[in-house]
Amino acid sequence: MNPLIQFTLFLADSNLILSQKNAEWCGHGPILEQDIAITNITLDLLGQARYFYQYAAELMNQAGHTHITEDSLAYLRTEREFKNLLLCEQPNGDWAQTVLRQFFYSVYQQSLYQQILQQSNSQLSAIAEKSLKEITYHIKWSSEWVVRLGDGTPLSHHKMLQAIKALWPYTGEFFTPTDFEKEIIPIDYEKLKMQWIDSVQNVLEEAGLPMPQNIFMHTGGKLGSHTEHLGYILAEMQYLQRTYPNAQW
């Protein structure tokens, strides 16, 4: 498959899966106002994913596939075809784990999209430009929660420590380029990593949380090798379209 299509699907899938996970909070948030906040972020991520899927579908139809749509890409692909980051499919855990997952992802998204903005692909850079405004708010919201909980009570601090332990091993994948990433657009992964580490370190320091060092990092999500969680997510997300093909409402 064309590397540009793979890269676009990787961007779309990561957003869609994180959006699907965050959406599980809908109606279950710790307080009404934060329930709405996380749901707004969920919808932002889903909106960004749709732009990427629409673009991927267009590229795929041009490349000889037929009848590919944003819906068929989201609902009719299997686990091995999904290229989302492993971080995005990790369980919600408690509120601490959810806000930390969002924080790690949003900071990564910001640096990556800023680089995509500089690229010659006008479609991707247009989507990146539109998304960056939303991402700025997601970082503000999630980083404030990381500080609030990390620097809060002994219990909330403990929960943030648990969340870091659970999620940190999935952040190395951000900076490990796959073949399709190397082939399409020149992304500076060293710069990406430095920016991410820098932003995350600032916030963790303010939150009084330690920065993990030299931990084994899982990779493979971008190439379709997922953790056990993704199958369940897809089963729930896709079952309606698979049971009643082309159902509409």
């Binding site: 307080i31 009404l32 106002e33 934060q34 709405i36 906040a37 707004n40 503000k140 404030e144 609030r148």
Partner: peptide
């Protein structure tokens, strides 16, 4: 009206609840 832990959160909650 809405609930929030501090003023900054109140403004963000208001942004999410009343200006979406």
């Amino acid at each position: 009206s809405l609930h929030a832990a501090d003023a900054a959160m109140a403004i963000e909650n208001a942004r999410d609840v009343y200006t979406r």
